[in-house]
Nucleic acid binder design. Structure first.
Lengths: 219, 219
DNA sequence: ACAACTTAGTGTAAGACCTACACTATGTCA
DNA sequence: TGACATAGTGTAGGTCTTACACTAAGTTGT
């Protein structure tokens, strides 16, 4: 190992999105130790000696919050020399999407963990507010040209539920018929044949994603 | 500085694109020292203790190749633990675009430096072939929804020259009239009023980019 | 039973946009 | 002045996007 150059502390962070109470929310954790004890920040941590970047993001997310098995991709790497007052820390930011239905109990806030609406975040540690903003922007952009929104859906879902997800992320209402023309014809989803019954109204067709892990580029 | 965790060697690399002989070419440098002496790789180097990531990319590009003042953006961070046999090196990859006209003498190949067509690269060090492939893909995608191609143009250019750039990057011919309808109407370029004369044929109108550094998202 | 309520689900017409396609214009050079 | 080479231009057909309002099928309360 002939290299002995300047080294940096390398971390990953994850912006975990889900939908709660008709809002796009982000998972925050309260930092357990000084300095910054009690300050809200994104889940994340240091990359292990023999660990891949995405592996680290997945691991810290699981260990710190219990969230696992979700869609996750790299976002951007933040490395301003002064971004952490303790020293040089470069973080490889990721974002992840969790279907609300898949949060078995993890949707409860407690002292360690909370979900905050993306548009009303508390003050966050370091440059984590910029990371969230970039993740939200990327997510909204991807709605237009990919099937990424399906990553928020449970195993079976209605088109109205899916439309609601689009509207919440984009922050604007969409036309129902036009939405159904676009999305109802996607080859990556199919009708289950079953119906969703709730409330005093007509039941809705249930759909399913054919290959749940997959995100396609469309157009 | 209470942190004393595992650290990584942090580097940046840059995929520098330009157009030469009607081909999209990438700047390679020959590694000067063992191990890998004489092996081709992307320009790049270690991030200084108090240096930003983009600053490092700009600096190493300038020092190793003389290229400066170009459009540059972050691409992706590559961090597989085994990507460098010497030890853990994480690289923040960038890509840059240089107008051919702006390469004053830098377009000459020599022992240290050469420009290779993106589709006929020699064997490269580490995972640099994957980095080039991702950069090319990103560049091609951005042609569709941004004005990034203008970063290849000199101060003044003709629409035929610009069309050629699109065709070379995309690898397919485009319709002249449709191209001019799309791009001739962009608000970010304007006619200079002058004409480009060359060869035994009709002169072409010269255009100029209004705000040269800027890349707009269109559509 | 039926009336009130709630959400699901559907079609169409106008305009914008995209695509394919071929000829004239204007210069240079022999 | 004729041959040559590239610049520059319009249109018609099809596709896609947008705006827009009513009927369908359940539940609940009387």
């Amino acid at each position: 190992m002939p290299i002995s150059p300047p080294t940096a502390v390398l971390a990953t962070n994850v912006v975990v999105f889900t939908i709660r109470d008709d809002l796009l929310v982000v998972l925050l954790r309260s930092r357990p130790r000084e300095p910054f004890q009690g300050v809200w920040s994104l889940p994340g941590g240091l990359v292990g000696d023999n660990e891949g970047l995405e592996d680290c993001a997945v691991r810290t997310l699981r260990d710190q919050t219990g969230v696992r098995g979700v869609y996750l991709e790299q976002l951007y790497t933040f490395g301003r020399p002064d971004r952490d007052p303790r020293g040089r820390v470069v973080t490889v930011a990721h974002y992840a999407l969790v279907p609300p239905a898949q949060l078995h109990g993890l949707d409860e806030d407690d002292g360690q963990r909370c979900w905050q609406p993306v548009n009303e975040l508390p003050s966050l540690a370091f440059d984590h507010d910029r990371i969230v903003a970039m993740a939200h922007q990327r997510l909204a952009a991807k709605l237009d040209y990919s099937t990424i929104a399906l990553q928020f859906m449970g195993e079976r879902f209605t088109l109205s539920e899916l439309q609601r997800v689009y509207e919440i992320i984009l922050g604007e209402p969409l036309d129902k018929r036009n939405f159904r023309k676009r999305v109802g014809g996607l080859p990556c989803i199919e009708q289950t044949g079953d119906w969703f019954r709730a409330g005093n109204h007509r039941p809705a067709r249930l759909y399913r994603v054919k290959q749940p892990g997959r995100v396609d580029i469309i157009k």
